[in-house]
Simulated scan of single mutants.
Amino acid sequence: MRTPGILIFGMVMAPCGWILNLTATVAPSWRTLNSLPNIPIDQFLQQGIWDICLASTIKPGGTCGQSDTTYFNNQIIKVAQGLMVASLCVTILGLCVAIPGVRCWKRTPNWTLAGLGGLLIFISGVLTIIPIAWYTHILSAITTISSRNDVRVGYCIVLGYIGGICEVLGGFVMCIGFCRCCGGRNRGERREKSCELEVGCLMNSVCK
């Protein structure tokens, strides 16, 4: 029996989401601050949940390790650090649980293991979306910012949303295999049975 499509979908989406979430976690670009006082117009700050970098629009690279105690003491930063790391760990755990259930070396998948792995992957996606959405909602209120500052969403927010949605969709689709419905069509069983019936009929006709 071939690996059912819902398991293939989930096992592709989960690693893709994990890579995007890993990038969103470690990269210092959850938001950018432009038009900063006492700083050249071509320079801007990139703020993440672990580091802050001073970059320039006309020069490659940037200077990281910028200090901002007020920013890092915000509640959302502490929450985002914990949930994003937890999400990465839960995704790995979910894949470790799902892989033995999905396996390609046995005739039928272990739907309990595969579904449990999908549930963990779904939860990891939710753990990513919560801090991303919260951070976006209070983007300009995280620290006291002058009205002259130009606050913009960083690319990590976009990557985090995409990664979280990938894991939520992949995990949800894998969880569909928990129950057998539509005559087993959700597990890819209907097609397999029909193929076996056609092969059996063909063999009988040949023997006759």
Rank of each mutant, 00 (worst) to 15 (best):
N186G: 07
V102A: 13
S124F: 05
G125H: 08
L197G: 06
R191A: 11
C182L: 14
N149W: 12
I121C: 11
E189C: 10
G170Y: 04
G184A: 02
C182Q: 11
S124A: 06
G200I: 09
A141V: 03
T143E: 12
I138V: 12
C166P: 02
V158M: 15
C182V: 02
T136M: 08
G188Q: 08
G171T: 12
V173R: 11
V151C: 02
G184E: 10
V199D: 13
P100N: 07
G184M: 01
V151I: 00
K193Q: 15
C96N: 09
A114K: 01
G125R: 00
C195P: 05
G118M: 01
V173K: 01
R180D: 09
I138Y: 09
C104M: 15
R190M: 13
F178G: 04
I176H: 09
I162D: 05
G101I: 03
R152V: 06
E196N: 12
F172E: 00
M174W: 01
C182M: 10
A133C: 15
R103A: 07
R148F: 14
R107N: 13
S147C: 11
C166H: 06
T136V: 06
C156D: 12
H137L: 13
C156A: 12
R185H: 15
V97T: 07
F178T: 05
G163I: 06
F122I: 09
I121Y: 00
W134F: 02
R107I: 11
E196W: 01
V97H: 04
P131G: 02
G164M: 04
N110A: 11
V158T: 15
G200Q: 15
D150S: 14
G101V: 00
I121N: 05
G184D: 05
S147F: 02
I142N: 03
E189H: 06
F172H: 08
P100D: 00
D150H: 12
G184W: 02
I123P: 06
A98L: 05
R190K: 14
V173W: 10
F122L: 14
C182E: 13
T108Y: 14
A141F: 13
A133Y: 03
P100A: 02
F172R: 04
I130S: 10
I129D: 11
I142T: 06
L116S: 14
L139K: 07
C175E: 00
I121P: 03
L113I: 02
E189T: 00
G101Q: 01
C181G: 02
G163Y: 07
T143Y: 08
Y161F: 14
G171D: 03
C179E: 09
T108D: 15
V153F: 01
T143V: 10
L139V: 07
C104E: 14
G171Y: 04
